Amino acid sequence: MFYPNSPQTSPQLTQIPYGQQYAMMQRQIQQPYHPFATTEPQARLYPYHYQGPIQQEQGGFITQQSTAASPQYVQMRVTPVDQSIMSGYPNQTANGSSSSSFNYNIHPQQQQQQQQQQQQLRHHAMPVGSVPLQDDRYRKQLIVNYLAPDVTSTDLHELFSRFGELDGARIIYDKQTNMSKGYGFVYFCHAEDAKEAVERMSGYEFHGKWLKVGYSTNPLNIVPSNSSPYVHAGSRGAAG
């Protein structure tokens, strides 16, 4: 039997160049792979992502010199942007860049009308829970959420009447099932009393439920100042 490094198959040491006398086997001759043993700084910083320098080929596509990437890492192929796409944008300079302001050559009167329309939209648009300043009635009506099913309009009136005089209180019921929808409205005579009720009743436990109280901004629920107070009856038909 002959071994790869046996004296019968191995040459004389004098015939082997210096430095390879003890590297006779194939696994010894093959050098191990060192990912950080390279002179390129990109490979030292990113050993798993770097795959060699990027070269520009004919046709405008950018390719990489090395083989496919590892399945664990996804390499994105980048193509140059066609400058003709950006030619339609206004205020574009000769080098292809555009300024931040756009001039669509709008007539001054049209621009003024658009600004007025935007101001009107901001004036009428009102986020949930906010209180408008032009109508004091919005500051007097509250919406009470997360009410228990057994709470009546009379219970709601008695709960909030300790903060001040009320114009009314009612629970909203479903017309088909005649069941409470879980929320109601309270109408105060003074805005200061309503503000105190919002601050003190939010998070209050009532009939096993934690109440959420806020201003009601729905104009359909506003009680006119010259109208008669609501009837605080315990029956659902009268309260709904």
Results as ranks from 00 to 15, higher is better:
53 P>M: 11
136 D>P: 10
207 H>L: 04
214 G>S: 13
65 Q>M: 03
138 Y>N: 02
225 S>V: 14
198 V>E: 05
28 Q>G: 12
220 L>I: 12
140 K>N: 02
144 V>Y: 00
30 Q>T: 08
121 L>P: 10
209 K>N: 02
167 D>S: 02
75 Q>N: 13
201 M>T: 03
158 E>H: 09
47 P>T: 05
103 N>R: 15
2 F>T: 14
204 Y>F: 11
229 P>M: 09
201 M>E: 00
106 I>S: 06
148 A>G: 06
135 D>Q: 03
218 N>T: 01
120 Q>N: 14
27 R>S: 04
135 D>S: 07
192 E>F: 13
10 S>R: 13
127 P>F: 09
36 F>C: 12
99 S>V: 10
44 R>D: 03
81 V>N: 10
49 H>D: 06
197 A>W: 00
48 Y>P: 11
12 Q>A: 08
240 G>M: 04
64 Q>D: 08
84 S>P: 08
212 K>T: 03
198 V>G: 03
5 N>D: 12
82 D>I: 07
144 V>A: 01
96 G>E: 05
6 S>G: 08
59 G>Y: 05
70 S>N: 15
232 H>P: 06
201 M>A: 03
122 R>H: 04
99 S>R: 13
176 Q>K: 08
237 G>D: 05
195 K>S: 13
165 E>F: 15
148 A>E: 02
178 N>F: 12
52 G>L: 05
81 V>D: 11
186 V>W: 01
231 V>W: 14
71 P>H: 12
226 N>H: 10
164 G>Y: 02
213 V>N: 01
212 K>N: 14
149 P>T: 10
5 N>P: 09
72 Q>L: 03
5 N>A: 07
110 Q>N: 05
209 K>E: 02
157 H>F: 14
49 H>Y: 09
24 M>P: 13
112 Q>C: 09
114 Q>L: 09
31 Q>A: 10
123 H>G: 08
204 Y>L: 14
109 Q>E: 04
98 S>N: 07
48 Y>G: 15
154 T>F: 04
173 Y>L: 05
109 Q>N: 08
34 H>R: 13
228 S>R: 05
15 Q>N: 10
38 T>N: 10
189 C>E: 04
201 M>I: 12
50 Y>L: 11
93 T>Q: 11
40 E>R: 14
37 A>P: 13
38 T>M: 11
172 I>L: 03
132 P>N: 10
14 T>Q: 14
225 S>P: 07
140 K>F: 00
167 D>M: 04
56 Q>T: 07
180 S>L: 02
62 I>N: 12
117 Q>G: 10
162 R>T: 11
99 S>F: 05
126 M>I: 14
81 V>Y: 06
212 K>Q: 04
157 H>W: 15
82 D>K: 14
169 A>G: 02
67 T>Q: 08
172 I>A: 02
11 P>G: 06
223 V>I: 07
41 P>I: 04
35 P>H: 13
201 M>N: 01
235 S>D: 10
182 G>K: 02
25 M>D: 11
163 F>P: 01
80 P>Y: 11
28 Q>L: 06
166 L>A: 00
184 G>F: 01
111 Q>D: 12
89 Y>H: 07
38 T>A: 12
108 P>Y: 11
48 Y>I: 09
183 Y>H: 02
212 K>S: 04
181 K>Q: 03
79 T>Q: 06
68 A>D: 06
216 S>I: 01
49 H>V: 04
126 M>R: 08
90 P>Q: 13
204 Y>E: 08
73 Y>M: 15
236 R>E: 03
45 L>P: 14
81 V>E: 13
33 Y>W: 04
93 T>Y: 12
20 Q>C: 12
135 D>H: 06
129 G>Y: 11
211 L>V: 06
148 A>N: 12
43 A>C: 07
166 L>S: 00
108 P>E: 12
73 Y>F: 12
